[in-house]
Structures are given as C-alpha cells and as structure tokens.
Nucleic acid binder design. Sequence first.
DNA 1: ATGAAAGCGCTAACAC
DNA 2: GTGTTAGCGCTTTCAT
Lengths: 330, 330
Amino acid sequence: MAKHAGVSKAAVSKVIRNDYGVSDAMRERVRRAIDELGYRPQAAARALRGRAFTIGVLMRHIGIPFYAEIMTGLVDQLAESDYQAIMIQGGTRDKTEKRALDALIDRQVDGILLIAPLVGRTQVEQVAREIPTVVLGRHVRSPAYDSIVDDDRVGSELVMDHLIALGHRRIGHITFNQEQGRAAEHVPRIRAETYERVMRDHGFADEIAVVATSYSEEGGYDGARELLSRSPRPTAIFAGSDEAALGVLAALHEAGLSVPDDISVVGYDNTRLAAHPNIALTTVNQDGVVMGRMAGRLLLERIEGRTSAVHFSVVPSLVVRRSTAAPGSG
Amino acid sequence: MAKHAGVSKAAVSKVIRNDYGVSDAMRERVRRAIDELGYRPQAAARALRGRAFTIGVLMRHIGIPFYAEIMTGLVDQLAESDYQAIMIQGGTRDKTEKRALDALIDRQVDGILLIAPLVGRTQVEQVAREIPTVVLGRHVRSPAYDSIVDDDRVGSELVMDHLIALGHRRIGHITFNQEQGRAAEHVPRIRAETYERVMRDHGFADEIAVVATSYSEEGGYDGARELLSRSPRPTAIFAGSDEAALGVLAALHEAGLSVPDDISVVGYDNTRLAAHPNIALTTVNQDGVVMGRMAGRLLLERIEGRTSAVHFSVVPSLVVRRSTAAPGSG
DNA sequence: ATGAAAGCGCTAACAC
DNA sequence: GTGTTAGCGCTTTCAT
C-alpha cells in the first residue's frame, strides 16, 4: 500500500487517522492509492497498537424489541464517528454472560455497553477500570462508570395513578423473581416497590398482591393464574413488563375473562406489539432510541478522556390503550 | 506471562492452542500460571498472525424473533468450539449493509454468516474467496459458499393447500416489493410464485390477487386495505410473513371484519407472537434453531478446510390456529 | 520437547 | 512535512 503510493507507512497511517502534519499533496496521493487498491486497514493490527474502533454491546438475547430500539439509537450516534458497534449475546446465566464479556475484552473493544447485565457492580467496576463502560437498565450510580435508566419510579407511578384514577383498588402486580443479592439496583424491584408504596399511600395496603415469577410471557401467564385464584380476584393487573402482560392476556383469555370489562391490564415498555389492535395494551413508553443514542455519546466521551461518571435518566410516559377501564364496567 | 511460568512464549502459545510437542509437566506449569494471572490471550494479536476465533454475523436488525432463534442455534453449536459469535447490524440499505460487512472483514473474522443479505451473489462470492461464508435465507446455490434455506416452495404449498381444502378460492397474497435484479433468489419472490402457481393449478387463475408492499406490519396493513377495496373482496389472505399478517389483522380489525368468520389470514415464520391467543395466527414454522446450528457447523467445517459448497434446506410445517376457517362461515 | 527469533500490519516517537 | 524505527502480543519456523 505504502509502496503503491510511493510514500511511507507512517504517512498512510496519518492520512487515515486525519492526523496533523500531512501536506495536501501527500493526502491526495495517499487517498488515491487507497481508492485504487481498495485498501482497508486491519482492525486487529490497529488494536494492537492503538484503538480497535469498536464498541462492544452485551445483551442477554437479541429478539427483544426494546433492545432493537437501543441499538438503533446507538448505531445512529456512532454513524458519524469511526466506531462500529458489535453485539454479543450473554444469555441468561452468570457463566455464559461472563464468557461473552470476556470475549469482548479479549477483542480489545474501545468501549462496552452493558444492557441490563446480570453481573454486579463490583465486577463491572473492575472492567470499567480498563475499558470505558456504560450500563443501561440498572439503577446503580457507580463513580467508575456511566449509567442510563428509565425512571422506573415515575413510570410505575404513572401506571398506578392511572388505575387508581379509574377507580381500581384491588390491583395485583407481577414481578421478576431475581436473586436477592444486588436486587436493589434491578428494575423489577423498583417497579414492585413503587407499586407497593403507591398502594399504601392510597390506603390500599390490604389489597397488595404481588406474585414473583418472571418478566416473560410464561411468567405473566403463571402470575395471572395465581392472582385469579385469589378471592376476591383483582380488578386490575399491573404486569412489570409488556412481555409479562402478554402472558396475562393469554391467561385471561383462557379463563374466559374479557379485557378491560372484567379486568384491566397494564404493561411496561411499550413494545411494538402492545400497539397492535388485537392487543391494545396500556403501557409505559421509555424511549429506547434516546437511551441508545445517549449510550453512544457517553462512550465516545469516555474514550476521548472523560473520567467523571454521568448518570442519565429518561422520563417515561404513559400510553393509554384499550386494556384499561373503570372496574366493574362489564 | 511466559516469565511468570518460567517458560518461553512459544510454549504458552502451544498450550493454549493444544498444539502437540508439549510435555505434561510443561502443560501443567503453564496452566497454573494462566490461572494465577487470570491471563487471557488478546484476540487482536492472535488475529494478526493466525485466527481471531470469531464468527461474524450480519443481520438487518436485531429484534426480529426469527433471527433470535437462528442465533440460539448458532451459539449452541459454537459453544463447544473456541469460536465466539459477534453480530453486527446492516440496516435496510445497500450502503449501510456494505459498511457493516466491511467492518466484519476488517476485524478479521474467521467466518461470516449472512442472514438474508441485500448484497448479491457476485459480491458475496468475492468475500467468500477470502473468508468462509454461509448465507441463510437466500435461494442461491453458489459453488463458492454454503447456503441454508427454508423450503419456501413447500411452505407456501402447505398454506395454499390448507386454504383451498377449507374451500377458499378468492385468496389474496401480500408480497415484498424488492429490486428486480436478483429477485429470483429472494424469499418473497418464491412465496409469491408458488402462490400463483398453486392458484393456476387449481383453476383459480382469474382470482389471483397479489399486492406488493413489504413484509412489515405496515406493509401488511397497506396491502390488506388494497385487497379489501377490491370487489368482490378475497375470502382469505396469505400474507408473506407473520409481520405482514399482523398488519393484515390490524386492517381487518379497523374495517370491522372478524377473523376467521369474514376472512381467513395466514402468515409465515411462526414468530412467537403468532401463538398468542389474541392473535392465534395460522402460519408456517421454519426451525430457526436448526438452521442456526447448521450454519455454525458449516462454518466450522469450512474453517477446518472444506472447500466444496453445501446447500441445506429445512422442511417447514404448517401450524393451524384460529385465524383460518371455511369461507362464509360468518 | 523446548526456546530463540522473525514477523503479522499497524501506530507512536523521533530524526531528518 | 516526511521517513525511519521500534514494538504492540501473539504464532510460526527453525535450531537445539
């Protein structure tokens, strides 16, 4: 490559990196040679000496619509930089997630975005000492890394206020049963705590009914069946996620109960499906695209040298659809 | 690292790669040092000389449930190897996909899985000359790379036979309007052609009604509205994908038509949502997990040296749910 | 069976 | 403003 342009390797390197100390003529000559040869610098070689120009994203699975929104924002933000986002699946077990995280580190990524990681604060801090790190979806404010969350307290309050304003008081909640250790920073815990607090604040402490399963469709299904078996049964169910709400709807359908006439249902996340007319789920919207874009910005800033931590919170909004109504209207 | 174990770098390298010519004592010593130091080889440095131990997967977006299945199979297959799968989003435009593909190549991946790529055969062949490549979801049999497809002819026949057996003859179809150039290898084209062929074979040539929009929910919505505006309107709609079928359901809902009493709807892909009781979509199941596992196997084989091309076809099956019934039953 | 040495393709520091 | 040089952390070849 350098030979073809009749210049030194260093000159080529400088042109590619837009480094200073290159004459226009030199730049032009190198540019032409690059085009003629279709030359592309090898990321591995660059990584060995400097940067890999790669942002690694760790997520449990792909296939989750909300994650897709995050990626849209991230890619959009990185588009103007020289950085590329690569993704890796961590799975749902500690061990597989660890392996995936190690794989990113081995590949010398310049920044890491952890989406709702299983790994705890201490371990993330260890990684963050070496590599700029942003955690999305964990309510933890470490000085060692940045975080981005939706304000789950506000979102949950929106849900509860909506239901209570409609006249509900026997409201059930389905949450995600996670390990206790670091649960305080976990989203399901915050949504559940807010649910309980609002219930108490309104004098409905006796009506509190929380079932801990998971945020999956299956978890919602099981949770709803459990809630329905109680007597009297709730007039509304606040599922901790849209996924779980889908399971709730399935269980209600199976039980021959109609929504919202017999029972109101609320989700959280505003996945694309919630908007479908056959579902029409009242839910909380958190702007994943904005969160992803912010993640990209924070990572680029850290790569450029910022060391102080930034903790960003997105304000959610309630989207009211046809799955909620006043109780006993059917 | 080598110093800590009191051996040469070459010895460490051999132990890590399970190369021959290492005594048990040496292996033991190196292993212990690795554990003590928590040593991990840098992929970038390895890539420069040998392999990156990385499989790159290019897909349009994450967030597509079927792609998640493919990844599950791929990761499962690679779990027993030293290879890691990383994903990159190509987006829906030629240009962004090209950029993503280049990014994988720059990162020296050892193998590439292209999921329903926009890029055409010639360009893929160029890549495949350098890097083992598997294409999933394109009906093209190149001698230069492997391919994995669902047998879309069989799947589409299953759909049509089902509808015709129920008594439908005015069946509409919604397809994906792609560039004509290389359309022959594209899935939507094959599904549409099979639809037309079966219609003709049964003497329903006059009833053929194809609307070309896209395989998205919006595309299905628009397509359905177009089909409903015709007179007489179809008694059944075969949407080319579940996504599109969701849009069809939305349009029917809006038009006050009930499914399946007024009109039957069939999708394709058996995404998780199709199974939800509020949707209950009759659709075609293609085993994404099997396809992903096969992709991993083919890539590993190619990395090990296979040069002849393998073309693998998965046999789909029909999943009948409540969105189809005999015509005029309502 | 083991180690010394060369070199993969870049970047950074320095000399000119 | 440009070229030369050293070296990033591995793998590979070749002595020993």
